[in-house]
Simulated assay, not measured.
Amino acid sequence: MRSVELFAGCGGLALGIARAGFAHDIIVERDSDSVTTLRENKMRQIAHVRDWPIAQCDTRELDFRKLGNIDLLSGGPPCQPFSIGGLHLGPRDPRNMWPEAIRAVREIRPKAFILENVRGLFRPAFAGYLAYITLQLTYPDAKLRDGESWKSHLTRLRQHAESRAGQDAAYRVISRAINAADYGAPQKRHRAIFIGMATQYGDDWSFPAATHSQEALAWSKHVARDYWKRHHVRRMSGPASVSEGQALKRVVARNKKPDEHPWLTVRDAISDLPTPTKTEKVAGHWQHPGARAYDNHTGSHHDEPAKALKAGDHGVPGGENMLADRQNRVRYFTIREMARLQQFPDDFIISGSWKAATRQLGNALPTSVGQHIGGAVMKLVQSKRSG
């Protein structure tokens, strides 16, 4: 099935979508470091990436009407306008690319789309703009008029939705705030996911269910205790965090093994890598110096999913790009370890300096999210075709 990927970054979502079975007609990214990464991995014949037509350009320069019969549009419009760590300018931020993502939906008319952004988009401060995005994706042909403000356009879209004409929606759109750890990533990365299905595929579908859970990890560590046996490490005497303690109480009260898979942990992701040194013996696996812990800057625990990686080269303010051992000594994750936490294969190279590579990985989506959600969308489209 054919797909288009916009705002690709270094390719986390694109790779997950490709693993789900989609073939990208075009991969679009503007950032030069990310494009260098994509092209280097294409040249090195990395699985899936070797087949990608990569275009380095501003999405605003593209005429999407030249792309026909596309099954899936996917991508992550730049998240800084809605990030908790940003300036909170939202729709007033010049980096806001949601209008371009919506234009792409309108001009391509894919059978489905998967768009992702930061969870901050679900904050009350952006409730109006969230409704605006959803209604535009539902009725992409009801375009913004020249000189019209987005708030006036939102009013018009709401009136349209409530009218008889509103019954002719182009897409049914479902959005959720998810934790990537619930979809098989060894990282507690919270994202906003928008899934749209052309109305010809009906309403008989729902947002893909989570595959992993903290409760299942708590069971594995503290009830079955197979987690420690598998890793050949000494069992911790208690939960690694307050939230894990609460999860343990829930599973003990139910006295039943959870149906989901356990959350993947940092140890699951990187324990087979050698201890990093100043010498690079594994690609990207060398120790960047200078890590230190202080209040609210404590790093990730080995036996939980990592904190969400940040695009800043030092991961401030929460120590997100650091690893803490059982004695609370910290060090920076290596580039290879961060790539593992985002689920890139070990032969996938992140190009550029430490700062450039960290920025690319800190902006990526773990590949398992795209693979699971993309696979669910593919099954739905295929089932409706066969039906």
Rank of each mutant, 00 (worst) to 15 (best):
H301K: 13
D313K: 10
Y294Q: 11
G284D: 00
A311I: 01
P289C: 03
H288L: 02
G284H: 04
H302D: 12
P305A: 05
H301P: 00
A283C: 11
E304N: 10
H288T: 06
H302P: 11
T298E: 09
T298W: 05
A293Y: 02
D295P: 03
K310V: 08
W286I: 04
V282P: 02
H301Y: 07
L309A: 13
D295R: 12
P289Y: 01
A293P: 10
G299S: 09
L309T: 05
H288I: 00
D303N: 10
P305I: 00
A283M: 11
L309V: 05
R292E: 11
T298Y: 00
A311Q: 13
A306K: 10
R292Q: 06
G299I: 10
H301V: 01
H302G: 09
W286H: 14
L309M: 15
P305E: 02
A283H: 12
D313V: 03
G284Q: 03
K307H: 11
A291G: 02
A293E: 12
K310R: 13
K307L: 15
A283T: 12
H302T: 02
A283F: 03
E304I: 01
H297L: 10
N296D: 12
A293Q: 13
G299Y: 11
K310F: 07
A293F: 08
A306M: 09
H297W: 07
R292Y: 09
A306I: 06
A311P: 04
G290L: 08
W286G: 01
H302W: 15
A291Y: 08
Q287W: 03
A308L: 02
H288F: 09
R292F: 07
H301A: 04
T298S: 12
H301E: 01
L309P: 08
N296Q: 15
Q287N: 07
G284C: 04
K310E: 10
S300A: 07
Q287F: 02
A311G: 15
H301I: 06
G290Y: 06
W286E: 14
D313I: 03
D303F: 00
R292D: 04
K310Q: 13
A306D: 03
A283L: 12
G290T: 03
A311E: 09
H302A: 15
E304L: 15
Q287S: 14
L309G: 10
P305H: 00
A308C: 15
D303Y: 02
N296P: 08
P289T: 00
G284R: 00
H302Y: 15
H285S: 05
P305N: 04
Y294E: 13
A293R: 15
H301G: 01
D295V: 07
H297C: 11
A293K: 14
R292W: 04
G284M: 06
G312E: 10
K307I: 10
E304C: 08
D303S: 02
